[in-house]
Design a protein around this nucleic acid. Structure first.
Lengths: 251, 251
DNA sequence: CGTGAGGTTGACTTCGGTCAACGTTTGTGG
DNA sequence: CCACAAACGTTGACCGAAGTCAACCTCACG
């Protein structure tokens, strides 16, 4: 499909590097040095790939604006969604192990990213201990995200998965300083369903229940959380907590 | 429960550090320096913890001999198995993100590990680029393992999961130079089932089928692979490929 | 030899998948 | 700017894979 054309224009300190710069607070001079190796791409349009499985690993990608999804195609041609990434996230580390990317990443909407050429980043990190530490932390976070995803898939029922996803999404928007009770998330229901190990039909049914119960309103790309407490309760609790809406009406 | 008593005795270059030393081949002097920060524990007995969720993150653990499992307890008190680790594996990176371990790791049998105090390792890695690179690769591998686990959980049916697990286990033994068609794996069926997102009953039923079909013999802790080709086929293929044994008899 | 944890097997239930029909939105070209 | 097509989403009826519950077996170990 449409590959990412890398028409570079450099410089982008406030770019998408929150995750790398802020947590431990690099020195201003360090940030400038980091800045100097960063390559900004003009814009990635919806449907463009940041990378594909099998491609040589060369750079990490820091997302500045927009959203992307990471996915794999299974041997049977099914799409397995691995995650959605928002501004501030850094991706691409999957490729380091074999110097070859292990999954595909595609823009869900118009997206801006910064390229972090890995060999340069690695060399710089050796000179800036805090930067190196941040890199390691970033990967540790990735490990833990995977752990949580596995937990969702192996221990929660469909209701809880959907509730958890909405709740988690809200948290992510919150942590980035966006409104967290009402936001836009430009991803197909099908994709969220796949991410959660569900079918689109099941996902749709559960969204309907959540809307009927006035907990969440998710129409097309617009998501509203009407009852955060109920949502959090659903996301965490074991037994299928969502009554069939039919039952609610009967009661 | 029984915590790991760290009665240190240092020195252990050939210890459990294959994953750190060998892939890129550190210099002999570098290995000696790495060696100097490694702390070997005398022995961890079955049931002892390497670490628990919530504990302060201080060291990585390289497994020299034996086997451990990583797991979490969900809010509902269920055990979620995250993985099994064998000699050569290095674990503990989950704790880096918050300087606090995110899961529990317990010995499945008598196990020998090396402690790699992380602050020292990190400092050393800054001086030995190849070591730093290995650390990053190690984490990349962890990310990819998580990805595969998610794929198992979200895309494969019970038959495929079990087949995949046996096949994968065999590969791991092979890659460590052990016999890979006949080996011992001291883990409860219950634990493997949980790892695969199944119940012990389902796991048992599928093992019975695999034994009836003369593909795998897994009694107690002893595993034999009788038909590797069939196993690999099962592990990879989409549709439920295992006929009910009853059907086989009827045919 | 008895006990208890682990494993197996069967009968039954159920959650979520499948299939199919029908809405609804989006986007494109006449 | 409208019309139409195609992709996306929703809903219902049905089905089946795996979970649950319960009984029983067996093996390791004191």
């Amino acid at each position: 499909m449409n590959e990412l054309k890398t028409t570079f224009s450099s410089g982008c300190s406030s770019c998408g590097l929150q995750r790398i710069c802020f947590p431990t607070g690099l020195m201003r001079t360090d940030i400038m040095r980091l800045d100097s190796i960063v390559e900004r791409t003009p814009k990635v349009t919806k449907g463009q790939y940041l990378y594909k499985a099998g491609q040589t690993f060369e750079t990490l990608f820091a997302i500045k604006a927009g959203a992307v999804k990471a996915f794999n195609i299974t041997q049977q041609g099914e799409e397995q969604i691995l995650g959605f990434y928002l501004p501030g996230d850094v991706i691409g580390m999957d490729g380091l192990q074999d110097l070859m990317h292990q999954c595909n990443v595609v823009a869900l909407e118009s997206t801006t990213v910064c390229l972090l050429p890995f060999d340069q980043l690695e060399r710089l990190a050796l000179q800036i201990p805090a930067l190196n530490h941040q890199l390691l932390c970033l990967m540790s976070r990735g490990l833990n995200d995977g752990r949580i995803h596995s937990e969702i898939l192996s221990k929660r029922n469909a209701d809880q998965r959907v509730a958890y996803f909405v709740w988690y999404l809200s948290r992510r928007f919150l942590s980035r300083g966006y409104k967290h009770t009402e936001f836009r998330f430009g991803v197909l229901h099908r994709e969220v369903a796949m991410f959660l190990g569900l079918t689109p039909e099941t996902f749709s049914r559960i969204l309907s229940k959540l809307m009927e119960l006035n907990i969440v309103a998710w129409r097309r790309k617009d998501i509203q959380i009407l009852d955060m407490a109920a949502l959090a309760r659903l996301a965490d609790e074991k037994v299928l907590s969502l009554p069939d809406v039919l039952d609610v009406k009967q009661a």
